[in-house]
Design a protein around this nucleic acid. Structure first.
Ligand SMILES: NC(=O)c1ccc[n+]([C@@H]2O[C@H](COP(=O)([O-])OP(=O)(O)OC[C@H]3O[C@@H](n4cnc5c(N)ncnc54)[C@H](O)[C@@H]3O)[C@@H](O)[C@H]2O)c1
Ligand SMILES: NC(=O)c1ccc[n+]([C@@H]2O[C@H](COP(=O)([O-])OP(=O)(O)OC[C@H]3O[C@@H](n4cnc5c(N)ncnc54)[C@H](O)[C@@H]3O)[C@@H](O)[C@H]2O)c1
Lengths: 210, 210
DNA sequence: GCAGTCATGTGAATTTTTTAACAAGACAGA
DNA sequence: TCTGTCTTGTTAAAAAATTCACATGACTGC
């Protein structure tokens, strides 16, 4: 089918499929049907087939999908069959947890540089990386080939961090701070806020209740 | 209008509205129109009016919305106009960052108990809380009135943690571990995985490129 | 090599969500 | 009090996403 426009929701589900497929593979499953995968992901099986159809034909009729092959195909489709180099801005509580979290590298996102404006932090070594001032972003980004910026500053500093990233010609931004940022529209921004999920849980609990 | 079923996407957007409205309030804005708010949130203004209409009429025609009032109304609608008591399971890298993050309490989600099965961690004091074994969840949950469980264990331990939470009659679960869990269907589960967002960024960058 | 079973890929039908359009209400100024 | 300007709440239209349904291809066992 190989479609033009892909729903955002599809991308989110593909991430879930990968997660479940990797666990299936670890448990020794070589092949899986869309129906079984659907159950594991709590979605409709047509949904899975349609999501995959946006990118190509990865299954075998009458058989299902070869798990390893499907993982590879999905990763290719998403563009995560390579390493993306990332810059972290803000090495506080959250930033440190991210730096220590080695899943990033395993999953194809390597944090290659860490920036913080706190004079007490600049110069410190952290997880084999020296913390430097964000003003160096502009020179380091091309040198290190940094493509994605991860903002983990307080919310009122997020825009400033974003400006540094834009100046440094970064290609995409993840913002962990709970505030919106303005950047040129060719640069995609994703906002990460756990509270979305907490609100959703609170709401669902409250609903079932009234 | 006061509708029956509310789209999940609406809940996500309400979280964004709150975030933006709180920043607006801090900057001294008392009133805002759906059009202005829409721009700040990068959505359509009809969308905002429709989202709000699910819950009631909060605006004044010809004027707009009173910011503080609107925040209050949205919080009431979501059921976050009170404190939700949470249990954290897994006090590692991630769990510690969550415990240290005081926004939780400020935003109405108080982590009142921390559980970990590591004998080296049990008994330690952390942020004024003693880390205890998850087997105590069952007795502590009713005592402390714990309603929401936050899982921050490694992925292969998430199901076990979920079982403890279910046993303890917890009412909703947030899972930070990258694995799906099975729980009785009256208990809502939300999965938090940053990689969704990283994938989305990688995909968008790749798209613009080919 | 044929029959039976299974599961994909896809067009059509359905449902859901988003956007547009506008009538009705609120306020300010004269 | 009346007029003109705004902006909401809501209905109708459009667009998008999800689900259904089934023809098509693949593999198994006889
Ligand atoms: N810690 C969590 O669990 C958690 C959870 C959700 C969201 N967040 C969000 O993540 C962000 C960071 O949280 P945190 O707990 O790490 O805060 P933190 O205060 O511990 O760390 C913030 C860091 O950013 C640095 N910083 C400030 N301004 C900067 C600038 N202009 N350039 C570079 N660095 C700058 C500070 O020096 C500090 O080291 C916050 O916006 C917070 O709301 C954190
Ligand atoms: N650190 C991050 O930035 C980050 C980011 C995204 C996702 N995550 C996910 O969050 C989870 C935790 O990550 P982490 O970095 O904190 O790992 P971690 O290994 O530092 O911590 C895990 C903790 O869970 C405890 N634990 C293990 N089994 C348990 C059980 N059955 N009951 C109670 N406690 C148990 C361990 O003793 C340990 O303290 C992982 O699933 C990880 O993939 C972490």
């Amino acid at each position: 089918m190989k479609s033009e426009h892909i729903p955002k929701a599809t991308i989110g589900r593909l991430a879930v499929y990968i997660q479940v497929l990797e666990n299936l593979l670890r448990d020794g499953n070589d092949v899986i049907s869309s129906e079984k995968l659907a159950q594991a992901c709590s979605v409709n099986s047509s949904q899975i087939r349609k999501d995959l159809a946006y990118f190509g034909e990865f299954g075998v009729r009458g058989v299902g999908y070869y798990v390893q092959e499907l993982i590879t195909s999905i990763k290719q489709s998403l563009g995560i069959d390579r390493v993306w180099k990332c810059a972290l801005i803000g090495v506080g509580n959250m930033g440190s947890a991210l730096l220590r979290h080695h899943d990033f590298e395993r999953r194809g996102f390597k944090i290659c540089a860490a920036f913080d404006c706190d004079p007490d932090k600049i110069g410190l070594e952290f997880e084999g990386m020296e913390i430097v001032c964000p003003t160096h972003l502009r020179e380091q980004a091309p040198e290190l080939n940094l493509e994605i910026g991860i903002i983990a500053t307080p919310p009122d500093r997020a825009q400033r961090a974003a400006n540094h990233l834009v100046d440094a010609n970064i290609r995409g931004i993840i913002n962990f701070a709970p505030s919106r940022i303005n950047v040129p529209k060719h640069i995609p921004v994703e906002y990460v806020d756990f509270f979305d999920h907490l609100y959703a849980i609170a709401f669902q609990i409250t609903l079932g209740n009234d």
